[in-house]
């Protein structure tokens, strides 16, 4: 279980101005849960994710993974980036196998596992394609397979579908649900789409800026029901879905208003 406790982050910006990107943020990532972080841009979502990934030290507070403090990046926390961070000189399979290579797995075994992961994200037949031969959606799927390869406990995703067109985005959401149902991970997923948060999250966090903080959270069951076979369309048309959508939008909007007055 990953726990964030009283995490604060201060940045120094140009001209010596101090910005508080996170203010005493606490959260748990339960195993088998998808925690969706929502909020206007600049409210500290990426800062929080980067701290969990180990890319960024905290000013105050602590992050624990199974009781052990998290200080640097590691294979127990897989990251899917918004802009794909694939290596352009490696084939899709070799990109997926990168973490396995680091772990010292023999070449043949690596290749087999990479191909199995590419099947999992529906990219069979593209093992030898280079990233620049793949579409944006396919590259994000390679990125997901790569992050899953080392079987991390935590999966961190920073607006991974943000740059995709809406149709590809829906495919990717279905895929994530499918993968999530097969592998019990603690997922932390950033988005600025309320709809995406409602469709994918077992928990939704809403963050507000200046200083970045969590102001509300909801436990949901839409994604469990979709994974169990209910139609996504039907779930989306439910009254509670629409009501939550409006409530969250109002909350984020009001926070922005307050923020801009300050």
């Amino acid at each position: 279980m990953l726990q964030v406790r009283q995490a604060s982050v201060f940045f120094e910006q140009g001209g010596g101005r101090i910005v508080q990107a996170l203010k005493r943020v606490s959260l748990d990532l339960p195993t088998g849960g998808i925690v969706m972080a929502l909020g206007a841009s600049g409210c500290g979502k990426s800062t929080l994710l980067n701290a969990i990934a180990g890319f960024l030290p905290l000013s105050e507070g602590v992050i624990l993974l199974d009781g052990m403090p998290v200080e640097r990046p590691g294979a127990d926390r897989g990251v899917v980036f918004q802009k794909d961070a694939l290596l352009p000189w490696r084939s899709a399979a070799d990109n997926v196998a990168l973490g396995l290579e680091y772990a010292g797995m023999p070449r043949r075994e690596r290749r087999e596992r990479a191909e199995a992961l590419l099947r999992l994200v529906h990219l069979e037949g593209f093992a030898d394609a280079r990233p620049n031969e793949l579409s944006g959606g396919m590259r994000q799927r390679v990125g997901l397979a790569r992050a899953l390869a080392t079987d991390p406990k935590v999966l961190l995703m920073d607006e991974p579908f943000g740059a995709l067109d809406s149709q590809t985005r829906e495919h990717m959401q279905d895929l994530l649900v499918e993968v999530w149902a097969k592998t019990a991970k603690q997922v932390f997923f950033i988005t600025h789409s309320i709809e995406e948060a409602l469709m994918l999250g077992t928990t939704i966090l809403v963050m507000l800026p200046r200083p970045g903080r969590i102001v509300a959270h909801w436990e949901l069951d839409f994604v469990q029901r979709i994974a169990a076979g209910e139609k996504a369309e039907a779930v989306r048309r439910e009254k509670r879905f629409g009501a939550l959508h409006d409530e969250i939008r109002t909350l984020i909007h009001a926070g922005e208003q307050v923020g801009s007055v300050q």
């Binding site: 990934a53 890319f55 640097r72 802009k83």
Partner: peptide, 15 residues
């Protein structure tokens, strides 16, 4: 991002 991705896949500095 590329460096961060490699580090979060468990790569050592040398790797």
């Amino acid at each position: 991002e590329r460096i961060n991705a490699a580090l979060s896949l468990g790569g050592t500095r040398w790797q």
